[in-house]
Design a protein around this nucleic acid. Structure first.
Lengths: 130, 130
DNA sequence: AATAAAGGTTCCAGAAACTGGAAGTTCAAG
DNA sequence: CTTGAACTTCCAGTTTCTGGAACCTTTATT
């Protein structure tokens, strides 16, 4: 599959896919004409990258996450440790999104028109996830 | 409150807070000595920014989100429309995080040692949020 | 009171993660 | 066989910080 189709399927711009190859995040094999050639597994990885990046994981973190599947020689306890750490980060992110969501939905429900200047939301703004 | 304390409370480096001021995201008033002076409301906004940025919202999106509270003259329907759109984005992010979480926890639970190379996870990698 | 350390200021340079554009090659359609 | 889309590389620019120099203010210590 050419880079255009891979871009289409993964949701990443072709430019970004080439950039990821530049920095060694995901190498694709080449067809005889020199074009990059992507397998469906490659596309899965690209989708995964798109998702993880859009959720605030850094490229280095994505590299780590990808390595969890890729490295057959890695010790199982090691994999588990890294995965567990990432799991905690994900849980934190979910909690933060939920608190962000609460703030916004409160805003939608209660703070219309003239009420808003004194809206209690501003007090909760960035409040802890209870 | 000085910038150091604001940094401490918000979780953002002082450098970043100054940068946010540079790009007009959050202006702080100045004390007589020229130091930036932050109110607790400012700190709430900073915390909010820290959170939203770490969750993958762009600076421009954060600016929009902040404007939801700040702009007293904005039409209520307008506020609701923007907030609703952001709410949808947040829901999507939550769903994506949950699917990412499922993949990782599956990895932890089932793909230890020699099983992993053929682990079914790689098939789910970046699979849709069901 | 003098001074050293800590923390504030601006400004400029560099890094991370893209993003756009030029110049050229290959492919598919008419 | 030509035209246009999609591919290639390479270089330059943008966004979002981040580090460091040079200098000023506050705070603690002698």
């Amino acid at each position: 599959m050419n880079i255009g189709a891979a871009a289409e399927h993964s949701g990443l711009p072709a430019k970004t896919i080439r950039y990821y190859e530049d920095i060694g995040l995901l190498r694709a094999s080449r067809a005889l004409n020199g074009y990059r050639d992507y397998t469906t597994d490659d596309v899965h990885r690209l989708k995964f990258l798109q998702r993880a990046r859009s959720l605030g994981f850094t490229v280095e973190e994505c590299r780590q996450l990808l390595s969890l599947y890729a490295d057959k020689n890695r010790d199982s306890a090691d994999v588990k440790a890294i995965a567990s750490r990432k799991l905690d980060e994900i849980d934190t992110k979910i909690a933060q999104l939920q608190s962000l969501r609460a703030v916004l939905s409160h805003l939608i429900a209660h703070c219309h028109g003239n009420d808003r200047p004194d809206c209690p939301i501003i007090d909760d703004l960035a409040g802890e996830a209870h």
